[in-house]
């Protein structure tokens, strides 16, 4: 069973990045790279080699789905598990996100105290 250690979190809103860092690093104990945009993620992903990528859906310029597409083009990243973070979680939308290649969708706003558990849960269910 593969272990979840390194998470890349892509989010344009600095407040949420700060909370996510607390939630995933201090609470969850994961190794986390925070990216402020899709472009930022594409530039830094090779150096980090994440086990899992969490992508905000709505971002200026490259949005979540576009970032996912671009990540998939990169060598070695065709299979890396990706989950979207979004406020819009009607079941039809969840299905459409999954159709894009995401393993799951996490609802925003998230509870900082339980986000790690949720992420770990998704990992165990789909990958681990």
């Amino acid at each position: 069973m593969a272990e979840l250690k390194r998470i890349m979190y892509v989010e344009d809103e600095p407040d949420i990045r700060a909370v996510a860092e607390l939630a995933l690093v201090s609470v969850g104990g994961f190794e986390v790279m925070l990216c402020e945009s899709g472009e930022d993620a594409l530039a830094r992903v090779d150096g980090f080699q994440p086990d899992l990528i969490l992508l905000d859906v709505m971002m200026p310029r490259l949005d979540g789905p576009e970032t996912l597409q671009a990540l998939r083009q990169k060598p070695g990243l065709a299979e890396v598990p990706v989950a979207f973070m979004t406020a819009k979680v009607q079941s039809s939308e969840v299905e459409s996100y999954k159709a894009l290649g995401a393993i799951d969708v996490i609802a925003k706003p998230f509870d900082p105290m339980t986000l790690s558990d949720k992420v770990q849960g998704i990992w165990d269910q789909h990958v681990g």
Binding site: V19, L22, V25, S26, V27, G29, P112
Partner: peptide, 21 residues
Amino acid sequence: MPSGGYQDVVNKLEALKAQFV
């Protein structure tokens, strides 16, 4: 919880919240 403990996280969250406000 690996570092700093629960109270530490709560305190940091509160500080972030205050900045947000």
